[in-house]
Structures are given as C-alpha cells and as structure tokens.
Amino acid sequence: MKRNIIIVCIILIIVSVCIVEELILHNTSDNLLILSQNLSQSLIESDTINSQENLDNYNKLNDFWKSSKRTLCFLTNYEKIRTLDESIIKLGTALQNDDKSLVVENISIIKSFNEFSHYFMGFNINNLL
C-alpha cells in the first residue's frame, strides 16, 4: 500500500513536470517569436537600424530572454538553446553598430529557432521518433 502511494506520487510528479515543461517551452517560444516579429516590423518601418524604437524592441526581447533562460536551463539541454542565446547577443551588438546584414541574419535565426523549436524541444512526434 505504502509503495503504491509512492508510485502514485511519482506518477503525479512526472505528469506535472511534463505539463510545466510543455507550457514553459511553448510560452517562451511563442513570446520570443512575437517579440522578434515586432522588432522585425519596426526595422522595416524605421529609416535607421539603431533608432530608439528598434533599440526599445530589442531591449524587450533581450529582457524577456534573460528572464526565460534561467527557467529553460532547468528543462532543456543548454546546448540546444545556445544558438538562440548567441544570436540575441549578436543582434544587440549589430543594432548598436548599425550593421544591417548582421541584424537581418540574427533576426532570421531567432525567428526560425522559435518557429521550429518544437521540433527539437518539448513533446513532438519528430522528437519522439
């Protein structure tokens, strides 16, 4: 009986960890995608790369990433989110240096990562097989 209770507790722990992981991964990638699309839109609309609006949008993206990274490290292999981390840092530098090609390159990486992150993180048939 005691063992059965422990097993039920373990099942509950596994289920809750799985749900929390899925929710966090989906929320993070969805929000990052929206924030990167906002930045992309403001880049198209503005005349200069390092305009205040672009920098504000980048700061929003960077702040969100900083707060999410800590939680993600508990749930995913750090190597998997390393590319995203590096691209966000490079994007900030490129914006300040007014380097258009580097901005376009990194923003594409960020967008693509968040669009397709569910193929290599969280529950997905691609991941399963």
């Binding site: 097993i7 373990i10 596994i14 490290c73 508990f74 995913t76 292999n77 750090y78």
Partner: peptide
C-alpha cells in the same frame, strides 16, 4: 552539466513506475 538534472531523474522515475 549542460544537461538538466531532470533529464536523468524523470526517465529514472518513469522506469520505476513502469517496473512497478
């Protein structure tokens, strides 16, 4: 160290449940 500890713990616990 780049792999979270839950990546080891959750499969372990899953096997315990499966075994039970």
């Amino acid at each position: 160290v780049s792999i979270p500890l839950v990546f080891g713990i959750i499969p372990l616990l899953t096997l315990v449940v499966l075994h039970h």
